[in-house]
Computed example of a mutant assay.
Amino acid sequence: MTAKIFAAAAALMAIVLGPPSAWAAPTPIPAPDGTVSAPARTQISFASLSGVRTGTANEHQSRTAMSIVKLYLAEHVVRLGDPADRDAAVEMIRSSDDGIAERLHAKYPGAIGTTIAEFGLIDTRTSGYWGSATTSTYDMVTYLDTKIRTDPGSPVLAAMASAHERAADGTAQDFGTARLPGVIGTKLGWTDDHGSAHASASFGTDFVVAASTYGSAEQLSSDVTAAFTDGRAAPPPVEPLCIPTVPPLCVPGTGTTIP
């Protein structure tokens, strides 16, 4: 049943990520040197489907990947692994379940390295344990930007778009880039002490964005929201719905039928 649900979700993602929405993406606030403005504790990267790419001056720092690395693990499993493991990979993303990550990494020890090579993740490092991997926000954006352009129906994207409100360990999955306007799906990461570091990677219809900080979830959220303006243009005007009466009864933009 789960496989059928996510096949449908993946098909929906392909539709959602079809024609870009011109008013969906936030706009990065530039620092004087042209990079994205943020405190030194935080790195941010951003890319739009129109070709704009930018980030903080430190966006290539390879920091602890935390649960963001589960994206790279799931990428291999859903495409190249045993079909019997694909539902588990999807659930690992939705609930950020460490237990599933342990089992999948034990079965596919080369999965993360394969994703690094395939997607050209220049700042990502892996060792014998998935939890010790490091990555950068630059690489997070590279991975998601590539997925949206080449594989918008991916179950990995669908899993991000249907993440549970709380992770397997009870953490609320609503911080960092998840709070930006236009975001459809997010993968979050945090250290075991829930304070040392947090990260998030998100996508919308026409952009991807990632952030990582040495600090709390709220610090990450604060730094991210301060680094962007709500770049959405006003939506197009809606023609009023006119009910054929004498005189015509028009209800602006509600779509409500009045008897």
Rank of each mutant, 00 (worst) to 15 (best):
D206V: 04
A65T: 04
H60I: 09
P237D: 09
G255C: 09
F119A: 05
Q173V: 13
T256N: 11
A111V: 05
A89R: 00
D192Q: 08
E75P: 05
V52I: 07
R53T: 13
V77F: 03
G51N: 07
R103F: 07
T54E: 03
A31F: 03
P247R: 10
S154G: 07
R41N: 12
A74Q: 03
D98L: 08
A11K: 07
D33L: 05
T186A: 08
T27R: 14
A163E: 10
S50P: 05
I5S: 06
T42K: 01
S154T: 09
K107I: 09
T54C: 06
G195V: 08
G255A: 10
T177M: 12
G170T: 07
E239A: 15
A22F: 15
Q61W: 14
K107D: 10
S196Q: 10
A227I: 04
T186D: 09
S95R: 15
S136F: 02
A84K: 01
T27P: 10
T257P: 08
T171A: 12
V141D: 00
S62L: 11
G81A: 14
Y108H: 03
M1H: 14
A133Q: 02
V78I: 12
F207R: 01
I44R: 00
P244S: 06
P32N: 12
G113W: 05
F175Q: 05
A25S: 07
A101S: 14
S222N: 09
Y72V: 10
S37E: 14
M160P: 02
F46I: 01
A24D: 05
D169P: 03
G55T: 04
C250L: 06
W23E: 15
S196R: 11
A10N: 04
V141R: 02
A47K: 00
A89N: 03
V16H: 05
Y72C: 13
P235I: 07
L121V: 09
A14L: 04
T134G: 13
A163V: 12
P20S: 02
L80S: 12
G128Y: 04
T124E: 10
A234H: 14
S212W: 14
D174H: 14
P181T: 05
G51I: 06
D206G: 08
A25D: 01
P152Q: 02
G215K: 03
A40L: 15
R63M: 15
T35D: 11
Y129N: 12
M66K: 08
T56S: 02
G128R: 04
A161M: 09
A40G: 14
S216Q: 12
H76Y: 15
P109A: 08
A168C: 10
A211S: 14
T191G: 11
L188C: 13
V77Y: 01
P155V: 01
G110W: 11
F228S: 00
V224E: 00
G34E: 00
P39L: 08
G34P: 00
F203P: 00
I100P: 00
A158D: 06
G182Q: 11
D230T: 10
C242P: 07
A89I: 00
A22I: 15
V209W: 02
T254I: 13
T150G: 12
